[in-house]
Design a protein around this nucleic acid. Structure first.
Lengths: 133, 133
DNA sequence: CCCAATTAGTTACCTAGGTAAGTATTTTGC
DNA sequence: GCAAAATACTTACCTAGGTAACTAATTGGG
């Protein structure tokens, strides 16, 4: 088992999963990264970009961009905080309204991706991925 | 164990692995996707863009772009085949010369990534990833 | 109290992936 | 044998990730 092959496979699987998810989300004009933020905000309430950044372990410009697209498409609004450097990102009523419907679609996607893996194997996979440096 | 969490983790790990690899490759002006192609061509000889595409399960424009960058930086040359629609991509002497040195750096990276995982776990991880749809 | 350092976010520019539509060449079917 | 279909690649434009350098606002130390 070559290390290279394992990492290669990891990359391929993630590419395919995201491609498939994007196809499922297409009818909503949403993309995978945008869905992730929608999910996070719906379940944790309004957050600053810094908090979103830390949650996803992604750099600041990525959040600026993705949130901007979501704002343009009416999914979120940006509210300046008490600390006026901060921007709180909040779901719009439209986003809250459609959330469950979209979640159902994403859940179906996730189940398909993991359909050949049982609960124990999921735990194992999670455990192994967490061991990667 | 939520499906979502597992897929989320998968994405994060791949992001971090590629980020780290890019840092290691920076001194050569190479990026992860370019290294993958360098590796493939070194070990399999000159290939058409179609063959590279099929090997990596990636779309045609991605290969066009990445190969173009590699050509600009002197890593490969593109040779029109007998079928004049085809472009054979071939490593330059410079690329062949530096290959081993770069491979050593990538190997170190791969070993670091997998340092907490033993041989049996690697096989298991490989097996589980292959079960993803 | 004020100026330097820190922090939150933005902008500009890079690689890497995707789709859709186009060009040039080769194959195929009548 | 030629027109239609298929194939290899390219181009234009999209999202998503990265770094570096910037602005604006807040904090902290002398």
């Amino acid at each position: 088992m070559l290390n290279q092959d394992l990492i290669h496979l990891l990359n391929q699987r993630v590419r395919l999963i995201n491609k498939k998810l994007n196809e499922s989300l297409q009818e909503y004009g949403l993309y995978n990264a945008q869905w992730s933020i929608l999910y996070y905000l719906n379940n944790h309430g309004a957050k600053t970009q810094k908090e979103i950044m830390n949650y996803f372990h992604v750099n600041a410009p990525t959040i600026t961009r993705t949130v901007k697209r979501m704002e343009e498409n009416g999914w979120v609004i940006r509210i300046t905080g008490a600390d006026r450097r901060e921007r709180y990102i909040e779901l719009t009523d439209m986003a809250k309204k459609r959330y469950l419907e979209i979640e159902a679609i994403v859940s179906t996607h996730d189940e398909e991706v993991l359909s050949n893996i049982n609960e124990e194997e999921k735990k194992l996979l999670y455990h192994l991925l967490n061991k990667l440096d």
